[in-house]
Design a protein around this nucleic acid. Structure first.
Length: 507
RNA sequence: GGCGCUUUCGUCUAGCGGUUAGGACGCGGCCCUCUCACGGCUGAAACACGGGUUCGAUUCCCGUAGGCGCUACCA
């Protein structure tokens, strides 16, 4: 029977959501939506030691910004809650008991210190069929001993009993069949004594089963424990509804080796988190894509193409297009190095798609910060239309357009040397006269007049125009000259040429 | 160390037995042009290695090497 597709993204609230986690969530989302299914956000807070306040809110805010909407979750509600694992203790206890009663799990009293001692004493020590007979557990102790130990308040964990030498097959939608021998698996702790909570493995299987998850889509770091999960489904007798597994390739460091980590962002100067994050303990701030000027659509598009492709040359795709094209058949198997330059390119592309007035609106706070909050919106929109082609971020707008708002106070030495030749001040004086005589200062009307004057005088077009530009912009770059002067107006243009004649010293 | 996954330009990747090995980012050149960008065109740049299988391997299989992950009462 075909079950309705249900997937989940299950982060633990141990800090800000890593960009690799965002990518995993995105693939879950795309697959679910592509197949008319549902996506659940489950908070896996079964490690009370690593719990970080604020992390859960961060996760919700990040997905809201990115445009990934969950069908069920702590905030969204749903028929399969609670969606926070710390609120499901009773459920887990019940399922652990089932395993215990069925003889598929056992109680172990070994303390962390005892285990530590074993590990340093025996190389490659593993708690399994070979070694469990020499440990303190309900398999080696008599029922009476176990009972009295428990009654006396002795701490214990519950371990999964792994039968040795069995072939375990994990069926993975992107990797095919992955086979391991159960002897390489250890008797994993399913229930911890330290915080009276299950481990990831137990909670994960129980919740996925109860929440009717059909596809477990997660990072490749989980592949080694997937056989254990398969064994757990078998132990519970849930093999007929066991989800399909998909292990996604990891996001790797742009340089060097290893998977992308928090440190890489600080080191290489790009964010590894969707939103800025302030560590509640240390006060340390980690930059986010949102605060760095990224458009959420660009981040989504960029991330989608890391480890997946539509099978065509198309690269710029909206969320809806991604959804309609998505499949695991086009997922790659090997890790992808994080290419920050390409990320910038995506943002550049998406910025170009924005309407000018919208971009202008996004520019306003920055303009205000530079003391130009009173700028005319129509003028700003026009400015933005002229310079947007050269920006990767909204913040680049200032560097590219500040001369529209402030007269240059210094002049690029290199350009002065090249364009401010002897006699140029004199020609600029003439230019002032020509400009002063123009009544319609629009680009279209003024350009032929100035160009005509240059031609008539036999001046060098490039030299005169660049000297002109130097006085108005401060350097030889920027949009079409007459588009600039149209916005500046006659008075300001002439004022700047005069200022230039005064201040530019030829070399 | 053990176990598993993986391997096409510097990077992200297309390719699913026969291709001049394609695209994108970045880099170089040309065009456009008053400048710098944008844009258009274009150039350099890859099948890790060794065995098989096959008429034929980038493609399938096996090794080797490299890379990555896991190896906790963390997820």
């Amino acid at each position: 029977m075909e079950r309705k597709v249900r997937v989940r993204f299950a982060p633990s609230p141990t800090g800000p959501l890593h960009i690799g986690g965002v990518r995993t969530a995105l693939f879950n989302y795309l697959y679910a939506k592509r197949n008319g299914g549902e996506i659940i956000l489950r908070i896996e807070d079964t490690d009370s030691n690593r719990f970080v306040p604020g992390a859960e809110d961060y996760i919700n805010e990040a997905f809201a910004w990115l445009g990934i909407k969950f069908d069920e979750g702590v905030r969204e509600g749903g028929a399969y809650g609670p969606y926070r694992q710390s609120e499901r203790r009773d459920i887990y206890r019940d399922y652990v008991k089932r395993l215990l009663d069925a003889g598929k799990a056992y109680i172990a009293f070994d303390t962390p210190q005892e285990l530590e001692a074993k590990r340093s004493e025996i190389p490659n020590f593993q708690y399994d069929a070979k070694t469990r007979g020499g440990m303190r557990n309900s398999l080696t102790l008599s029922a009476d001993e176990v009972k009295s130990l428990i009654d006396s308040g002795e701490k214990y964990v519950v371990r999964f009993l792994v039968e040795p030498d069995c072939k375990v097959v994990v069926n993975d939608l992107v990797r095919g069949e992955v086979t391991v021998n159960s002897s390489v698996l250890d008797d994993k702790v399913l229930y911890k004594s330290a915080d009276d909570l299950p481990t990831y493995h137990l909670a994960n299987i129980v919740d996925d089963h109860l929440m009717k998850i059909t596809h477990v889509i997660r990072g490749e770091e989980w592949l080694p424990s997937a056989p254990l999960h398969v064994l757990l489904y078998e132990a519970f007798g849930w093999t007929d509804t066991m989800p399909q597994f998909v292990h996604l390739p990891l996001l790797l460091k742009p340089d060097g080796k290893g998977k992308l980590s928090k440190r890489d962002g600080d080191r290489l100067g790009f964010p590894v988190f969707p939103l800025e994050w302030k560590d509640p303990k240390t006060g340390e701030i980690s930059s986010g894509y949102r605060e760095s000027g990224y458009l959420p659509e660009a981040v989504i598009n960029f991330l989608a193409l890391l480890g997946w492709n539509p099978g065509t040359d198309k690269e710029i795709m909206s969320m809806d297009e991604l959804i309609s094209q998505f499949s695991f058949g086009h997922c790659s198997k090997s890790g992808a190095k994080f290419d920050f330059e390409k990320g910038k390119w995506f943002n550049h592309k998406y910025l170009q798609e924005l309407p000018d007035d919208k971009l202008a609106e996004m520019y306003m706070p920055l303009l205000s910060a530079h003391g130009h909050g009173d700028a005319d919106p129509a003028m700003v929109t026009r400015v933005v239309s002229l310079v947007k082609g050269r920006i990767n971020f909204v913040r680049d707008l200032w560097e590219q357009s500040k001369f529209f708002f402030e007269a240059p106070t210094e002049y690029a030495e290199k350009d002065v040397r090249k364009r401010w030749k002897d006699g140029m001040p004199q020609i600029m004086e003439e230019l002032i006269g020509v400009l002063d005589g123009i009544s319609d200062f629009s680009s279209a009307a003024s350009e032929p007049i100035v160009l005509g004057w240059i031609a008539e005088k036999g001046y060098h077009l490039g030299n005169v125009m660049n000297a002109f530009r130097l006085t108005v912009v401060g350097e030889c770059k920027g949009p079409h000259m007459f588009d600039i002067t149209e916005i500046l107006g006659k008075a300001e243009t002439i004022r700047r040429i005069r200022k230039g004649i005064e201040e530019i010293k030829s070399c």
